[in-house]
Simulated assay, not measured.
Amino acid sequence: MRRGTIPGSSGRVRPMRLLGDPGLVAPCEEVTDFDADLATLVEDMFATMYAAGGVGLAANQIGVPLKVFVYDCPDDEDRRHLGHLVNPRLVTAEGITVRGPEVCLSVPGIEAGTPRFDEAVVEGFTADGRAVQVRGTGFFARCLQHECDHLRGGLYLDHVTGLRRRRALRAVRRSGLDGAPPQAPVLDRRTG
């Protein structure tokens, strides 16, 4: 087995881009060539997502500025949703807004309560150019919105406000993800 591969996958694990990388905040470009290189990219994205323990991954998270994302994500009823989208477009995000814990492979170790709509519909294409529409509810809807945000150059932290945002950004500073040296945690004497 090649180093960096997942058993049963033809993809290779690629390095993850982390918060602070300019490629994460730049909008991605439309895919124009539905060819073998695109199919390889999708396989590599699945391998990278699985290696990192994620449920979704956008191409710019591995340094490829194209509108592609992969997912292997459950919904709130624990139904598995597995697939990929090329040139996805968030058609609708509606229903109730639910604030739930959200994390990102490009912002490791930082979780924040993030508001997302409970229903989402995304249209796009498969790697072979077939038009598809994906509907999600609950956690899967959150995943679809999260990955579409990445392709527009956004992060889930952009949706976090108030005290939750301050706490998340403080955690980012402590981790060193913002480019500064990691800070030692401040002990809270009230909690021991």
Score class of each variant (00 low, 15 high):
Arg17Leu: 11
Val13Gly: 09
Val42Gln: 13
Glu30Asn: 15
Phe69Lys: 04
Leu66His: 08
Arg12Asn: 15
Asp21Gly: 08
Glu77Thr: 02
Pro74Leu: 05
His84Gly: 03
Arg80Thr: 09
Pro15Asn: 13
Thr48Leu: 10
Pro15Val: 13
Thr32Glu: 13
Val64Met: 09
Val55His: 01
Leu38His: 15
Asp75Val: 00
Ala47Val: 13
Asp35Asn: 13
Glu43Val: 04
Arg14Tyr: 15
Ala47Glu: 15
Gly63Glu: 12
Cys28His: 09
Asn60Ala: 03
Glu30Ser: 11
Ala52Cys: 07
Gly83Ser: 05
Gly63Leu: 15
Leu38Asp: 04
Ala26Trp: 06
His84Thr: 02
Tyr71Met: 01
Cys28Ser: 10
Leu41Ala: 09
Thr48Gln: 11
Asp21Phe: 04
Gly23Lys: 06
Gln61Glu: 09
Leu19Trp: 12
Val64Thr: 14
Val31Ile: 09
Gln61Ile: 04
Asp33Ala: 15
Gly20Glu: 09
Lys67Met: 05
Asp78Tyr: 03
Asp37Trp: 04
Gly83Ile: 02
Asn60Gln: 08
Glu43Ser: 14
Asp33Gln: 14
Arg14Thr: 11
Tyr71Gln: 09
Glu29Val: 08
Ala52His: 04
Asp35Gln: 07
Asp44Leu: 06
Asp75Trp: 00
Asp33Ile: 03
Asp21Pro: 04
Arg80Val: 07
Asp21Cys: 13
Tyr71Pro: 00
Cys73Leu: 02
Cys28Lys: 13
Leu19Lys: 06
Ala39Ser: 15
Met45Tyr: 03
Ala36His: 08
Leu66Cys: 06
Pro27Ile: 10
Ala36Met: 10
Phe69Glu: 01
Arg79Pro: 10
Val42Pro: 11
Phe46Met: 09
Gly56Cys: 00
Pro65Ala: 15
Glu29Ser: 13
